[in-house]
Amino acid sequence: MKVALLLAAGFGLLLLSELGGVPALRIVAVALLLAGTIGGGVKSGLAAAPPALFKSLAARFTLAIARVIAVLLVLPVATALILVVGGAAVHGADSTAGTAAVMTGAVIALALLAILAAAVVVALRALRSAAEDPT
């Protein structure tokens, strides 16, 4: 009950602060929301353990969507980095910033793309091996 009250009050104040133009209320709203979710978390964490079935369903659910989300979440930055490389190729020579600076940007973008690709491969492999781990 207390948790619900905290969350409701926090949500109301947040609407007021962001949409009603009273930014001073934002921190109070966030504090109330945090108190609500943390309080709720602690309360249910200290209570009896959740049924094993729930745990196993949650784990399976997590794994299934984790793969999809992992890919979706990196697509925007991957696109932006490809644009950096493309931009450098198309406008690099006539850029007012200087060709060397723009080309450096392209190299950095390529490096970041490589890191991103490696990270996604490692993450997907990790998720697959977790899913396949024999019990």
């Binding site: 931009g87 406008h91 850029s95 600076a101 940007g105």
Partner: peptide, 8 residues
């Protein structure tokens, strides 16, 4: 530097 490449 990456931002510079994006300006176009």
């Amino acid at each position: 530097p990456a931002a510079l490449a994006l300006r176009g």
